[in-house]
Simulated scan of single mutants.
Amino acid sequence: MTEIGLPATVRACLFDLDGVLTPTALVHAAAWKETFDSFLRRLQGPEFEPFDATADYDEYVDGRPRADGVRTFLASRGIELPEGDEDDPPDHDTVHGLGNRKNVIVLDKIREDGVEAYPGSVRYLKAVRAAGLRTAVVSSSANCRDVLVSAGIEDLIDVRIDGVVARERGLRGKPKPDTYLEAAGDLGLGPDEAAVFEDALVGMDAGRAGRFGYVVGVDRTGQADELRRHGADTVVTDLDQLLGAKA
């Protein structure tokens, strides 16, 4: 299937959202930084070590469900918070409270600035569908549908497995492969018939653990070697680089 750069056995494409289809990974990273820096400043004073919106985001937060991102980053700093409840107000110093604070910030940024899909991703989505393949988006974000609509690409996606669906169905988040396996299943396919497209290292791990037919790493931040080490079969900086390529 050289016109879209995938093995001939692949019948569906399963795309992460943030950083793969839309540049919202940058929005999320900025929102996490604002959230964590405010919390750490209150906890540790003006000499606190700030959240690194590249290194800390990639290592502890990117691709994970929101509460897992809070737990994982805080654990890296030796901090443990009470879990709280999923509907905790955003000013509560709990795992869910911090996560909800981050979500408020993200939604404000999206409303203020809007969202546009990567042009290369739109071209690739259209080529995939023209080639007769099914499509799904697999994201830990609870705001996935809003982003798809804002970016004008919802009609190019057949199945959506996001943070809302994962919670409803009791699916474990990345790096577990559950959400990707669920997307393939909703399309009526096995994992060997689907390709995973990810920019996050935990997403690479999910693709490898789920034994998917092909895993594409999308390198927007200069981590191509890490993406390969975590299981990418190929790495591109934009999806339209796959057009006309040989898998």
Rank of each mutant, 00 (worst) to 15 (best):
V70D: 01
T54M: 06
L133R: 12
R66S: 07
D93W: 06
A29Q: 13
G84Y: 02
N103D: 10
R41L: 12
D87C: 05
E34S: 13
R101S: 01
K33S: 01
A131K: 10
I105A: 05
Q44T: 01
V106T: 14
W32M: 05
A127N: 15
V106P: 02
E34A: 15
Q44N: 08
G69R: 11
R71D: 06
D52C: 08
T94F: 07
G78F: 04
F36Y: 13
G63Q: 05
A127Y: 15
G78Y: 02
R42N: 06
P50K: 09
R42D: 11
E83P: 02
P82Q: 03
R77P: 13
G45Y: 10
P82L: 04
V106S: 13
D56S: 04
K126A: 07
D108L: 05
P82V: 02
E86T: 09
H28Y: 11
G97P: 05
L74Y: 12
R42M: 07
D93I: 01
F48P: 00
P90F: 00
I110E: 03
V61Q: 05
V61E: 01
I110H: 07
E80G: 07
A29S: 15
K102E: 03
L26C: 00
K33H: 00
D91A: 10
Y118C: 04
H92F: 12
G120N: 04
G45Q: 14
R101H: 11
D93L: 05
A67S: 15
R123C: 01
P50C: 10
S38N: 12
L98D: 02
I105M: 09
V61A: 14
H96A: 06
F73N: 04
L133M: 14
L107V: 03
R123D: 12
T94K: 03
Y118V: 05
F39R: 13
E83M: 09
V70N: 02
V104W: 09
L133C: 09
P90L: 00
D85P: 04
V104C: 07
D113K: 10
L40C: 12
F51E: 00
A29C: 13
R64M: 08
D56Y: 04
E86F: 15
P119E: 15
V115A: 07
S121N: 06
R123T: 09
H96N: 11
E112V: 01
G132N: 12
I105N: 06
E116V: 08
